[in-house]
Structure formats: C-alpha cells, structure tokens
Nucleic acid binder design. Structure first.
Lengths: 371, 371
DNA sequence: TTGTACGCGTTATCAG
DNA sequence: CTGATAACGCGTACAA
C-alpha cells in the first residue's frame, strides 16, 4: 500500500495511514522509541519523547488498535447484546453502558438478538471473533439455557448479564429488585384502601415477571389479604390484551378495586378501556404499572409506575465488567448487583383521599451489593 | 436448569483460543490450506476442505477478525456516531442500522457525541483507530464545521451523514424531506379550513428545522395565505415552552385557529395548556406536530404528526455506505438520499367536519434518489 | 536510555 | 491443487 504509484488525481487518492514505522524513519530512531514515547513509558528521554509526540501530531498519527489488540491478546472493545433497541428501557441502558464504557476507554459493539436465540448465538460468535474484552447481555425471550455462553466462559472473557437473566444460575448479573418494586407498588395500593387488587402478570418463564408476581403476592400476604388466582391474569403485557383483561375482570361477580400491572403498556390499555366504559380512575378502580414509560406522565390521569433505573443498570454493568477485568483469576465468577427500584406515585393510584406526603421517591441508597 | 455438573474444577483455567495454526498442525497440512478451506477458496480439494471444516467445528475454531483486518487493511466494523441514544428517533435509526449492517456482515460500533463537538471529534479518532470500514454520523448540535471529518475523507473511508447535516456541503447524506412533510401537514390544516396557522419553529441553525419552516411557508403561499411572522415562534421545542408559546398566541388580538409544530413535545405542551383553559381541540384550534412520537396516539385527542421513517433512514444509510464501499474510486463523493415523510392524520387536526378519505398514508414510492 | 528481533493470527504471493 | 514465506502494525523480552 505504501507504493507511490501515480494514479489519476493525486488529491483523490486516499493517503495510507501513518504508522509508527513512518515516525521512526522520519526521526531516525527505532520503533521501540516511538512505542515508548506514545505509551508514556518511563525509560524514555523527555527530549526525544517530545520530538516524537510533536511529529505524531503533525503527521496526524492514529494508533492502530487492531494491531495493538492482536499483539496484546486483548482489545478495548466491549460487546453488548440486547433483544432490540427500541422502547424506553434498552436504549436507556445502552446509553448508560456506552457512557460508562467510553469513560473507561472502551468502545461498544452493539448487537441485537431480535428476541431470537439463534441471533444471540451468532452475536456471541461475532463478538468473540472481534476479540472483545467482555460481553454484556440481556437475554432474548427465547433463550432457555446457557450452553452458547459456555465458550465465553471457557475463554475467560468477563460475562455480565443484565435485567433478563435465567434463574438459578451462577452468573454475574445486574438486575432490578423487581420483587421489591412490585411489593412497594402493591403496598401503596393497599394503603390507598384497595382490597381486591388484580395483577397483570407477564410470561412467567422470565425472571423479571416471576419476581414481580412474587412481590405482589407478598404484599397481599403481609396485609392479610388472601391471594385470589382469579384476579391474576397471565398474558403478554400488550396494550390490547390489557384492555381485554380489564374487560374480563370488570365482568367478575366481585370485580377488583385496583390493578397492579407488571408492565405499563397493559395498564395503559386497561385505563383506556375503563375511560371508555365511564369507570372512574382512581375513584372506582386504582391503577399502577411497571417501567415508568414516558407516556405515564401524559395520560389522564397520569399513571403510577415503578422506575427501572435503566441508566444506572448500564453503568453498574460496566462497573462490574471492569471489576471482573481487574481480578484476573476467575475465582469470583458469580457476582450479583441488585438495583433498588423507585415507585413514582401519580394520579392513577390515589384511590384514597389522602395524598401521600412525598410524591417524589426517596433518593437514599439505591444500589445494594450482594455477595 | 442450572447445569453445574462440574463446578470449580479445571474449567477455571481459561483455554487459549484455537488458531489456524492449531488446525494445520492437527491435520498435518499447511496453514494456507486451512485458510483456503475456511474462506471457501476455489483452489482446494473438496475432501481436504471437508476435513478442515469438520475439525474446525470440533475444536470450536473462532476466526480472529482482528488479525484478518490487520492483514487486509479493512475490518468488518461500522462506526456510528449519534448525539445520544434516547427518545424515539435515534434508537429507531440505530435499530435500522444494526439490522442492515449485521445482514451485510458488519458489526456496529456505537458512539455518542452527547451534543458536543469535542466528543464527536474524539469518537472520530476512536473509530479511525479501530480501523472501521465506514462511519455513519448524525451531527451534534454544537457542530458547525466539517474540519474534523477531513481525516476520514483523507483516508478514503466511506462517510455518510444522516438526518443532521450541515447545509451546503458536498457530502454523502440520508435525510428526510422535512420541507415536504411540513408542506403536507400545513396543507392538510388549510384543507381543514384553517386560515390563521401558527408555527412552532425550532432552532434555525439546524437544517431540519429550517426546512420544516420552509415547507410551512410554501404551503401558506400556495394557498394564498399571507405569512404572519407574529405567528411563528422560535424556541427549543420543549414541552414547557410549547405551553408558554400557546399562551402567548392565545392572547393575540387575532389568535390562530391552528398550530403546526416542528416537534411533538412542543405541541403536546400546547395541547395540555389548551385543555386546561377549556379550549377545544380541534374544534377551536387544530394541532399538528412532527416526529410521530409514541405518545401521539395516546393523548386525547390523538395528535396528527409527520413520521420521520427512522428505521428506513438507518437502512438507507447502510445501503449508501455499502455502495460507497463498492465503488472504490472516490469519484462519487456526494450522494444524497431523500426519504419521503408520512403524514399521520389523527383527531387533533380534524378542524373541519369532513374526515379525510384516507387516514392511512399512501404506501407508494417513499424513497427517492437524487443525483 | 535506546535498538534488535520476534511473534500475535491471518492473508497474499509465488513456487512447486 | 498445495506449501513455504513474507508481510500487516504494534509490544516487549533481551541485548547494547
């Protein structure tokens, strides 16, 4: 590529990138000197170091990370696999990840599994081939085992799961305390005077929905309210199905006076159905959702919801990855970070007359290290 | 499903990745043969090829893209720089980019400029150091010149801008026909019988807001309606400011009967203010926004808006990048792709009684090649 | 403090 | 059809 063959128009010809060898030749020193000057090594004369740096600036030298990574066996790339980049949650998490990673000198390679294990598998291979230093992943909906992550572990590459994790597995993970969020939200409804509280549960093979259901149940039990399975609806959390389920619940001999949903879309559907039918929210039925989607403060009434701390999750994932990098030994191979959710109380849940003293959630310790 | 049959054992030792040399040694052939078998070269015996492929599967061989890229001078990485990954627009575009890129065998490195030229500059350097095959970028708000993109051009790396572009520059770009979207939206309001149509314009140093204002003006002129600068508000398109501006407009001696906003948040603020004041939408004042944010179909009334075809924009950007890759010669260095927007007509703009025949936008040719 | 020489894993060139 | 060998750009023992 260095061959100076004269093409048509010289200015149109892309100039080959300048390498350390070029700098060395220009200054009449060895490549080692160049390398040391650029990497701020200790054994290097301040004078020559300045000469090198100056020329590097002048010639617009760009280090070749590929070559460096190949030589050192580790790159400055961080792989991220998410089901998709849409909605509010994943973009926010990725935002947090990219910000934190970039601050630590890592570039982020983004892959979408598209909720498909096959894609997930392929992404793993791609990232391994790209020689990433670590992989952060939120599982696809169709993932039911960890086999394709074995090679990551075998290669000793830090692997961190976030949000969507398979239960009962010894992996590094950053998750929201879904149980706690659901517990608080349900408790809040109880405090508002609700006694027949229905629950929109999601697909139970996902840990997040399982835990939210658990929190719901525990809150009821702690208040001495019996759990009525008739009031628990299992569906895919879509807006349409939320409306349908609301219809079914309303038709019950003894309809609920509140609904706690494991997702915001479903509770939105329910709200729209209720307004359509002239049922007052929150006077007749109180509503609370999960995720704190942007639209929760736009609806009328505004929707009470649990915030998932998306950005913190991204940051925490990167932090965990960096810690795993430090401890070379794979001794600590199953660390868990649990983030505390925030309940945002809005109009839709104010069934009782007394407005809560603090609508703004407490800003205390919201991160908790486990193990 | 915890498959921890063998726990803390030999699996704690990270096994070094298997290379082509390993395969060669194992089979007693040369590395050249391995390379040819894996890259599906023509000069290779079908028998040996199968032997190689089989062993590769067995030993779980992962090609090292870094080494290949170093050797070939070009990687399979595609750099993407966006201002940030939040809201609806950029995540959707990135979604489109990643999907299309992955289909073409490219991995995406994502950077956020954070609306800061300095970050943007740094991202450029990072991506160049990572030896990306191309760069897609949507400019930060604080970018006012192209100097930091010169080195990209100098290195002959395909550079594609999307959405946010500096005007009057000869670059490859994928943009929405903002003027046309604004024109159609304003025309629709005129057809609904509105005559005093206000406009929420954004910061005019950004091409997109400039063009939307232009489309608004042209629509008025084509209908013989004089442009009243008093009805054009310049602010940052936030929800709060939208409400404030609406207040100002209402207080005018001759208030508007419609508002076309260059952004959805601002029109949402206006809507909320109007409902608060008991002004009926769309009977008293018709509203139309821009961006087709998710909340536009949640508000009451639902908001008419112009869709920006986010995903198509991502796909088109990748397509343009791939085309530039093909044509090695930098002859065609300023290609423009203009996407046609879609007007989604919803309740907020139905000022006249006659509902339009087609609420669903026409699905005809929506991509148009220029030059 | 500086220089020499080799290797990281892959592909391209040139012989056989 | 196959094999030996040289590069790609950088880091690092080792020697000077």
């Amino acid at each position: 590529m260095a061959s100076r063959t004269k093409k048509e128009k010289e200015n149109e010809v892309p100039s080959s990138p300048v390498s350390m060898a070029d700098l060395a030749r220009e200054l009449g020193v060895s490549m080692t000197t160049i390398s040391r000057a650029l990497s701020d090594h200790h054994s290097i004369g301040p004078a020559t170091k300045q000469r090198v740096l100056k020329l590097a600036k002048k010639l617009n030298y760009q280090p070749n990370h590929l070559a460096a990574a190949l030589r050192k066996g580790k790159s400055k790339l961080l792989g991220v696999i998410v089901p998709y980049i849409e909605g509010r949650f994943f973009p926010s998490v990725v935002h947090g990840i990219e910000t934190a990673a970039s601050k630590a000198g890592f570039s982020v390679i983004m892959c979408q599994s598209n909720e498909d294990v096959a894609h997930e598998r392929k992404s793993i291979d791609t990232l391994l081939s790209a020689q990433v230093a670590g992989i952060l992943v939120s599982l696809s909906r169709t993932t039911s085992d960890f086999r394709h992550f074995e090679k990551v572990r075998k290669r000793g590459i830090p692997l961190v799961f976030f949000d969507r994790v398979l239960t009962d597995d010894y992996v590094n993970a950053v998750v929201l305390n879904d149980r706690e969020g659901a517990y608080q939200s349900t408790l809040h409804l109880i405090e508002q005077g609700c006694r027949r509280i229905a629950h929109f549960a999601g697909p139970q093979h996902l840990n997040i929905y399982q835990n939210r259901r658990q929190g719901y149940i525990e809150a009821l039990q702690s208040a001495g309210i019996p759990v009525d399975e008739e009031l628990i609806a299992y569906f895919d959390m879509s807006q349409e199905n939320g409306a349908e389920e609301m219809e079914r619940l309303l038709a019950l001999p003894s309809p609920p006076d509140a609904v706690f949903a494991a997702g915001d879309s479903s509770i939105l559907g329910a709200l729209q159905y209720l307004k359509n039918k002239g049922v007052r929210v929150p006077q007749d039925i109180a509503l609370a959702g999960f995720s704190n989607e942007a639209f929760t403060s736009i609806t009328e009434p505004m929707l009470t919801s649990v915030d998932q701390r998306c950005e913190e999750m991204g940051q925490a994932s990167v932090r965990l990855f960096l810690e795993l990098m430090e401890t070379k030994g794979p001794a600590f191979s199953h660390r868990q970070v649990v983030l505390q959710p925030q309940l945002f109380i809005r109009e839709s849940s104010l069934h009782g007359q007394a407005a809560p003293s603090a609508s703004t959630p407490q800003e205390e310790e919201n991160v908790q290290q486990v193990r």
